[in-house]
Design a protein around this nucleic acid. Structure first.
Length: 205
DNA sequence: CCGAGGATTATCT
DNA sequence: GATAATCCTCGGA
């Protein structure tokens, strides 16, 4: 692919919910140190938007971990949770306003053999249908935190894909939020996915 | 297929 | 010291 397909910073420099919705159908690309290209079509995202969002890491202001959320749109925000898992976000909205889009599901496109090896013993549909599963599949860790995803230099970027018909986009409440997240934040429909795609993660009940 | 429970540690209070 | 934007295994239907 050429750099013409690379999503520019102007794509991310907008309302987080809009960025999350429009990322569906785009292609997340990871270039490994040996040059191997891994990629997947983005089929599920979540938006964590502005300081008042009580489900967002940004809710209590800046900390060492969440600082990237206030930074440059189009850069990565990667964090560690549950003692095992790396979660990949891309920063959205303007500098100074915290926003991030969590990647929750990918449909593998390139580098299938490598992805299969990295997810050994699992069924194909379990390779990348979850936020920590897709980072494990694409070898994304804190090494990628804060990297510029609007350039190919760091080995992690997003390319434009085929737009999704609005009728094929579904929304619902965000997954995995703690019981302490108050309404309306707990139930806001800021999870977006491509209807009927098998690489969408399991939702909360 | 589905639900329950454990794993495991950086981060924040 | 408690929690977490989760995953995996195991048991049962």
């Amino acid at each position: 692919m050429t750099d013409l397909a690379l999503l520019p910073q102007s794509f991310y420099n907008r309302e987080t919910e809009l960025v999350a919705r429009e990322l569906l159908g785009a292609v997340l690309v990871r270039r490994l140190a040996d040059g191997t290209r891994l990629s997947g079509r983005i089929v599920e995202t979540e938006a964590y938007s502005k300081h008042e969002d009580q489900a967002s890491h940004a809710r209590n202001g800046v900390t060492p971990r969440n600082k990237p959320m206030w930074g440059e749109p189009g850069h990565a925000y990667v964090y560690f949770t549950y003692g095992n898992h790396w979660m990949l976000n891309v920063v959205a909205d303007v500098v100074g306003v915290p926003g991030a889009v969590l990647f929750r599901g990918l449909e593998p496109l390139e580098g299938i053999e490598v992805i299969e090896r990295r997810r050994a013993g699992r069924k194909p549909r379990d390779w990348t249908n979850g936020p920590a599963r897709l980072t494990a599949a694409l070898d994304i860790t804190n090494q990628q935190n804060t990297v510029n995803m609007t350039a190919t230099t760091a080995g992690l970027w997003i390319e434009a894909g085929t737009p999704i018909n609005p009728a094929d986009i579904a929304t619902g409440p965000r997954v995995g939020l703690g019981e302490s997240v108050p309404e309306p934040w707990f139930s806001l429909e800021r999870r977006y996915w491509i209807r009927d795609n098998k690489y969408v993660s399991k939702a909360r009940k």
